[in-house]
Amino acid sequence: MLPAQSLLIVVPTLNSHPLLPRLLASLQQQTWPHWQLLFIDGPSGVQHRQWLQRCCAAEPRCRWVEQDPAEPGIFGAMNQGFAAAGPADWLLFWGSDDWAASPTVLAAALAALEQPEVASGTAPPEPLPDLLVCSGRYVAADGQLSRPTAFRPTAFWPTAFRPFAGSHSQARLDAAAYRRALWLGSTPPHQATLVGPGARRHLARYAPGFRLSADLDYFLQLSRHRDLQVRCLDLELVHMAAGGISGQQTQRRLQEVRRAYRRAFGGLWWFPFLARYLRRLLSLLEATR
Rank of each mutant, 00 (worst) to 15 (best):
S120W: 13
R137D: 01
S169W: 08
R179P: 06
A88I: 04
A181S: 11
A107F: 04
G95N: 15
D130F: 06
A171V: 11
A140F: 04
G86W: 09
E117F: 13
A107E: 15
A85P: 03
Q115I: 15
A176F: 02
P188T: 04
H168W: 07
R137F: 02
Q115S: 15
P116F: 13
A181R: 02
L92Q: 00
G143E: 05
S146Q: 13
V105F: 06
N79I: 07
A141T: 13
A109T: 08
S135L: 04
W183H: 03
T193V: 02
A192D: 01
A100T: 08
P125R: 12
D142W: 06
P197C: 02
A108W: 04
R147K: 10
W157F: 03
P158H: 01
L92S: 00
S120M: 11
P129A: 10
R180Q: 11
A175N: 01
Y178R: 01
S96I: 09
D89C: 01
S135C: 12
S120R: 15
A176L: 11
L184Q: 15
P153E: 05
Q191T: 06
P153F: 04
G86L: 09
W157P: 03
L106Q: 08
D142N: 15
R147P: 00
A107R: 14
P103L: 10
A177W: 03
A150C: 10
A108L: 14
A108E: 15
P129Y: 06
A100P: 12
A181M: 14
A155D: 10
A84R: 02
G86N: 03
T187N: 07
H190I: 15
G196F: 01
P188Q: 05
T122D: 12
Y138H: 14
A199P: 10
G136N: 13
E117K: 12
F164I: 00
A85D: 02
L194Q: 00
A83K: 15
H190E: 13
D89K: 00
A177N: 08
P189Q: 07
L194R: 00
P127C: 07
V133T: 08
A199D: 10
D142G: 14
S120V: 13
G136S: 13
F151M: 06
W90H: 05
A100E: 12
A176P: 05
L132C: 09
S146N: 09
V133L: 13
D130I: 03
E126M: 08
P188S: 05
T122M: 13
A85I: 02
N79S: 10
S102K: 03
R179H: 05
A192R: 01
P197A: 06
A155L: 12
A100G: 05
A199N: 11
A177I: 07
V118Y: 01
A123K: 10
A141Y: 02
P197K: 01
G143L: 13
L184M: 12
F156H: 09
A140I: 07
P148G: 05
L110G: 06
S169A: 15
W90M: 04
R152K: 11
R147L: 14
P189C: 07
S186G: 13
W90N: 00
A109H: 00
F164Y: 09
F82C: 11
D142K: 10
R180T: 11
